[in-house]
Design a protein around this nucleic acid. Structure first.
Length: 367
DNA sequence: AAGCTAGACAACCGCGTTCCG
DNA sequence: TCGGAACGCGGTTGTCTAGCT
């Protein structure tokens, strides 16, 4: 392995920390506080780079950290936040006092992802595998039932294999199994949240997922300082904002509800964008162009000068690539004409891709 | 008892963002 | 305004350990 330049040049120590080194860091922080980590190794008498010291402090030595195992409540929180905002581990960790982003990330990768897969939930999309498989089979009407599944992610394929081994006659029919296992696994105490979780993960509309994700990021950012464990603003907003029914089982905190607008739509994320043309047709064109942007662009913050629709389009396009290219149009009821034009642009593009590259959809690729 | 394997967790790396002179 | 340093984040790799053969 290649060492980073600073460590290479100074022959700095790497690898696991000793108790003596930990003590030096602790003593230094007690004396000087945190900050200016590049100076810490010298001041504390350590042969480590400052970055290593900072990491050791933030991930392990901080006195407010919990070192015991994750509780079912914390696990449920991680799952739900991940469903809403993806792998923004630092944001998720902020909602779990005493946990670091590294903790959360490791726990997700080693336990939760597998747990979800085992009960038939895709840990990437947080949807039942059966639904993803069904959607995958419906891409543009091109895919026939029973065709090979090649581009699904590893977890999905592994779990699909597992399930088909366990019950060969119904490899596509485990939503009921999923529901039962979820009810006993995710959390044994909170049936109300389980129900919401399940329903939201079964609702099956990817566009709604994306909207929920954006809303969750917005809300988490806004309310991160006033959150208690019992009133965490769980990111289940889809029903609140887009559905007229079934409001009784929502798990948003009261505070969160008070802070969030009653009806969120795409417009809530359009922040005075001077580049958004008023003409819906032009918006469609822009959406189409922007969806061709590199998927590697950062999306942590919704930029002031860029339409979230465009960012969302790029993100949605990347997600849809391997997951579900076909979203039933009649499942979604947009709240404005720009919502319609955005969605139509996306759906039209997906449809065009299906027509242009049927071979791509027919030919699976493997990781 | 030795070797192998998988799980869990700690640490590292690279890149993007922010800060500051 | 610019460039470098510092910082933060997410993905990946390394290491240790328990369980199994």
């Amino acid at each position: 392995m290649v060492r980073p330049p600073c460590c290479e040049k100074l022959a700095l120590k790497r690898g696991l920390w000793t108790a003596e080194e930990d003590a030096k860091i602790l003593a230094h922080v007690l004396k000087y506080g945190t900050g200016n980590w590049t100076a810490v190794p010298k001041k504390a008498g350590l042969k480590r780079c400052g970055k290593s010291c900072r990491l050791r402090w933030t991930n392990y030595l901080r006195p407010d950290l919990k070192h015991d195992s994750f509780t079912p409540e914390e696990e449920e929180m991680i799952i739900r936040l991940h469903a809403a905002i993806g792998s923004r581990w630092s944001i998720i960790a902020q909602q779990l006092p005493g946990r670091t982003d590294n903790d959360v990330k490791n726990h997700w990768n080693t336990k939760l992802r597998k747990k979800l897969s085992e009960i038939g939930i895709d840990p990437v999309t947080h949807k039942p595998f059966s639904q993803i498989l069904a959607d995958y089979g419906n891409i543009g009407g091109l895919r026939k039932p029973g065709t090979r599944i090649g581009s699904l992610n590893k977890d999905l394929r592994n779990a699909a294999m597992l399930k088909s081994e366990q019950s060969p006659s119904s490899s596509l029919g485990f939503p009921s199994i999923v529901s039962q296992v979820m009810l006993s696994t995710i959390s044994s105490q909170n049936e109300r949240t389980q129900d919401t979780f399940l329903r939201n993960n079964h609702n099956g509309n990817h566009s709604l997922d994306l909207l929920a994700e954006l809303q969750a990021i917005k809300l988490v950012t806004e309310t991160s300082n006033c959150i208690k464990k019992e009133t965490i603003p769980l990111p289940i907003f889809v029903e609140d904002s887009l559905s007229s029914s079934s409001s009784s089982s929502l798990t948003c905190s009261t505070a969160a509800k008070e802070k969030s607008p009653p009806d969120l739509s795409w417009h809530d994320f359009l922040l005075d964008d001077a580049f958004v043309p008023a003409d819906p047709q032009e918006q469609d064109i822009m959406a189409e162009h922007s969806s061709k942007k590199p998927a590697s662009q950062k999306q942590d913050v919704i930029p002031q000068n860029e339409t979230p629709c465009n960012e969302a389009a790029a993100q949605e396009c990347a997600k849809a690539k391997g997951m579900e290219a076909a979203v039933p149009r009649n499942d979604f009821q947009p709240s404005s004409s720009s919502d319609i034009s955005f969605l139509e642009a996306m759906l039209d593009q997906q449809y065009d891709m299906c027509l242009d590259f049927p071979n791509l959809l027919e030919e699976p690729f493997y990781y």
